[in-house]
């Protein structure tokens, strides 16, 4: 199993080192120039419709593309006190949806508290699941818990075949993911009329852009249904972000410059206008506020005078904040764009 950058003391485990490399550019223009040319500088939030909580870096997998550098050795986990601050902040607003991510968010002790409290406020909950966590012995009742609270599951499955999935996520992960999907289907997830939403996430197993979402969704539906009897609602395509372990892959395979050029050449102003950071607020495991989960991993908190901690939450100020950008932002604006909800443009 691949181990985290942090446990290997790899220089890329430092956000500063990643930002240094990304700002050196090597043949592609600064992101901010493209933003200016598109008439989008300064990029500003247009409200908050998704309150995204990253509860920590602990994960039962160590995927090759992980932008969090998550893994079984990571101990950064949101405390119950910080989770309470999140719920208190949420209660002051009418933000309709909470998106819980990690790591494997379900492994954090505050996960079920966040789900229960968010539902009690009448808001929609999304769980970004790696699927295999549903088979972890301590999580035997997890699937039923999620179904009982009508939690939408957004699950990673980079491809409908084992070879590509396992190459990115670890040996045997595809088979376990299929077992987890069958378990969810048995509870009604992904089945018409059940009200239990199960969406999958495709991301490329390498240094290339994702296919057109609707076309790969058809392939996934056909293959998973015919070969594995698995159903799901929608497939979201996500572009690999050139940070953390995927950045390590790009550098070690001499793909970095080509990939960054590919992203920059595919810059799409329509995707840039609709980037998810404009309608999302991201909270880190320590309660620090970020414009998105990627900025969180690069330790780029909210800027330009906006509150920086959940304890100082101010919906009006944060909903109109100016967004912090850097060259990794090309990952969200290439082609049809990329967000936690799939393509943008």
């Amino acid at each position: 199993m691949l181990v985290t950058l942090k446990s290997r003391a790899n220089p890329l485990s430092s956000a500063k080192e990643q930002l240094r490399l990304l700002s050196a550019r090597n043949g592609f223009p600064p992101f901010v120039e493209k933003l200016r040319a598109a008439g989008l500088k300064p990029l500003r939030a247009t409200g908050i419709s998704i309150f995204q909580i990253n509860v920590g870096k602990l994960c039962n997998q160590t995927c090759g593309h992980c932008h969090v550098d998550a893994g079984p050795d990571r101990r950064e986990i949101m405390s119950l006190e910080t989770a309470e601050l999140c719920i208190r902040a949420l209660a002051q607003t009418d933000i309709p949806a909470v998106d819980i991510t990690g790591g494997a968010p379900e492994l954090a002790p505050c996960f079920r508290y966040l789900v229960e409290q968010t539902k009690a406020l009448g808001r929609h909950v999304m769980d970004r699941s790696n699927l295999t966590v549903l088979l972890v012995s301590s999580q035997a009742d997890l699937a039923e818990f999620l179904a009982r609270h009508q939690v939408e599951i957004i699950a990673s499955l980079p491809y409908f075949r084992a070879a590509q999935t396992d190459a990115q996520r670890g040996e045997g992960v595809f088979e376990k993911s299929i077992a987890a999907l069958r378990k969810l289907n048995a509870l009604g997830y992904g089945r018409d009329g059940s009200g239990l939403k199960l969406n999958l996430v495709y991301n490329p197993a390498g240094a290339f852009l994702p296919p057109r979402q609707e076309s790969i969704e058809k392939q996934f539906k056909r293959e998973l249904e015919q070969k594995h009897g698995v159903a799901f609602n929608h497939l979201y395509t996500i572009t690999n972000m050139p940070i953390s372990r995927f950045l390590e892959f790009l550098l070690s395979t001499n793909n970095y410059e080509g990939y960054m050029e590919r992203l920059a050449n595919a810059f799409n102003p329509a995707a840039a206008a609709g980037v998810m950071c404009r309608t999302t607020l991201s909270v880190g495991w320590e309660g620090t506020l970020y414009d998105c989960d990627f900025n969180q991993m690069l330790e780029l908190p909210t800027g330009f005078g906006a509150p920086r901690h959940i304890g100082a939450f101010d919906a009006a100020q944060l909903g109109a904040r100016r967004i912090v950008t850097a060259n990794h932002c090309y990952g969200c604006t290439a082609g049809a764009g990329s967000s936690c909800g799939g393509t943008i443009a």
């Binding site: 075949r161 070879a163 590509q164 490329p204 852009l209 994702p210 296919p211 057109r212 076309s215 790969i216």
Partner: peptide, 12 residues
């Protein structure tokens, strides 16, 4: 090769 991967094809 790149286009095929970006259209969702696999190496097989």
């Amino acid at each position: 090769t790149q286009a095929c991967l970006e259209k969702g094809s696999n190496v097989e």
